[in-house]
Design a binder for these strands. Structure first.
Lengths: 111, 111
DNA sequence: AAATAACATCGTAATAATACGATAAAACGA
DNA sequence: TCGTTTTATCGTATTATTACGATGTTATTT
């Protein structure tokens, strides 16, 4: 690409964009939904659930973990992942903080 | 990339991912915030506000329009863009539908 | 009509994101 | 100890995304 010009934007804008990236792939959405439904999971669960290779799942899990949406605990030979509830709620609030600004919108103007 | 394997995922997962992509770039977040604050804008406003080239802004506007988050009306020689409030609210509900599923999470399990 | 203004689109260069096979590392069981 | 299981990481091929100059189109102005 041309590289994204991060310095042109506010910290909030960059943060929102980075968080949105976590949800911007159906595999990661599927992983998060799976975690929401089953509280936790291991890599192998997802390999069976989704049709992706183990390396690919691991890569998506790492991204979600880097962003902070999920956390992983070692559990014997396997790795147990679950959602980070504090981060989850802060992300929800950040998104709703943006969504709710539609209230200030004047319908007579355009929308 | 390897191409994203859309057929592996549910329609909801693909839809959520596509919507998230709209927010997954700081320039588009900035455009949406600008629209929320000023109700409407034209391409030229954003060229001044952000530091990006006119062609780049136009490209981001087109993506937001294709997703349905914004709409554009011809206004003389210029193009007036604004947020599509119905779509906006449906997107908020879709995201919150996912966020709210954290309620079913059992803290004793892992998180 | 000619010049100007405002966008959209095209073409393309540069970079980010996906996917996966192969391999490495760590824990467990026989 | 040795093989098995599970996950992470590396390397790399492929595709998507950004950015922008150049150009075309439409409307406005002079």
């Amino acid at each position: 690409m041309g590289v994204t010009k991060t310095d042109l934007f506010t910290q909030e804008q960059n943060e929102l964009a980075n968080l949105a990236k976590a949800f911007a792939h159906p595999a990661r959405v599927a992983i998060l939904q799976y975690l929401l439904a089953s509280n936790k999971c291991i890599n192998g669960d997802l390999v069976n659930e989704l049709g992706l290779a183990q390396a690919t799942i691991s890569q998506h899990l790492r991204e979600l973990k880097n962003i902070g949406l999920i956390q992983g605990n070692i559990e014997g030979a396997s790795m147990s992942y679950c959602i980070n509830p504090e981060k989850w709620q802060s992300v929800q609030q950040l998104f709703n903080g943006m969504f709710d600004q539609i209230e200030n919108c004047d319908p007579g103007e355009c929308c």
